[in-house]
Structure formats: C-alpha cells, structure tokens
C-alpha cells in the first residue's frame, strides 16, 4: 500500500516507534489547542504577581503556571489516551504483528475466512473496558477540563 511505503523505506514498518510517532502527530494539534486554551485561561494578574514576587520565567512555569493548569493537563492526557487507544486507521495499515495494538487484533476477526461476530464483539467489549473504567473514575476531571473557562 502506498501509505506504508515511506515507513517501509525507513525500515520502521510494523514497529512501536512508528506507532508512537504517528499517534503523537495525529493528536498533537488537539493537545496544543487544548493546552493553549487552559494556559490562556490563567489570569494575567497572577503571572504579574509572580513576576513582582521575583519569580524567574522558569519558576513562574514551575510554581505557578503548571500547577494551575493541572486540571487541563490531566484532561488533555486523558482525552489523548482515549484517542490513541481508539485510533484504527493508521494502526491497521502500519502494523501487522510486532506492533499491532488492540484495534488490529479486533480487525483480524474480519478476515477473508469470514466475519466472526461473537469473537469480534467479545474483543470489542474487552477493548472498551479500560477506557470505560478510566473515564468513570476521571469523569469529573474530564468534564471540568473540557468546560474550563466556559463560564465564570
């Protein structure tokens, strides 16, 4: 397939490193957009207060900016884990055996030999479970993160 030519050329086809890079690049825009929104929401007054208090740029980021953006960072991480976990298009095209994630495993039940509904359903349910559990425990954080700054 054409899409796999470049990875094949570099010898990284069906490798974890390729998967990591591809998933990172796919999710990077949304990561940047979300984090930008959270950091932008931090009141300028607080950063100016930190500057008046003698904080260097490094200390401002370390002690003020980052701790204040923790809910946003957490929900960004969570959302991106979900997106990476669910990503099927590239993972199915670029992996076969060595780096095949769950999506490739599930897709394998739809083979030329037939569509194995029972196995496909079981594997899909199993695949959903970790995200479901993680989402359940972090829903408060996630909703707060997603609606951060929407209202005063």
């Amino acid at each position: 397939m054409r899409l796999s030519r470049t990875p094949k050329y570099f010898g990284v086809l069906d490798s974890r490193i390729l998967l990591v890079v591809i998933l990172m690049l796919i999710n990077l825009p949304i990561i940047i957009w979300m984090l930008y929104t959270y950091f932008k929401e931090i009141p300028v007054d607080i950063l100016e207060a930190a500057r008046m208090d003698g904080a260097s740029l490094k200390n401002e980021i370390l002690y003020v900016l980052t701790p204040m953006a923790v809910p946003g960072i957490a929900s960004t991480i969570l959302l991106n884990i979900i997106l990476a976990w669910n990503e099927a298009f590239w993972t199915i095209i670029l992996t076969t055996v060595n780096a095949a994630p769950l999506t490739a495993f599930i897709a394998s039940y739809s083979s030329p030999e037939g569509l194995f509904y029972a196995k496909l359903s079981a594997a899909s349910t199993m695949a959903i479970a970790p995200i479901l559990i993680m989402g359940w425990f972090s829903q408060k954080q996630l909703v707060r993160g997603l609606t951060f700054g929407a209202v005063k």
């Binding site: 100016e48 207060a49 008046m52 208090d53 701790p67």
Partner: peptide
Amino acid sequence: LAMVFQSYALYPHMSVRKNIAFPLKMA
C-alpha cells in the same frame, strides 16, 4: 516594590502560608 492587585492575584493552589512565603522563597 510590592503590589496588591484588584483581583487579589493569589495563587489558588497554595495555602495562605505558601502564598505569603512565595516571594521569600523566590528571594
């Protein structure tokens, strides 16, 4: 110089003690 802002500009993730200590820690 020290400044007091209209919005207070306190660090919300720090206790009162840590807020007050912040400039001293930076110094």
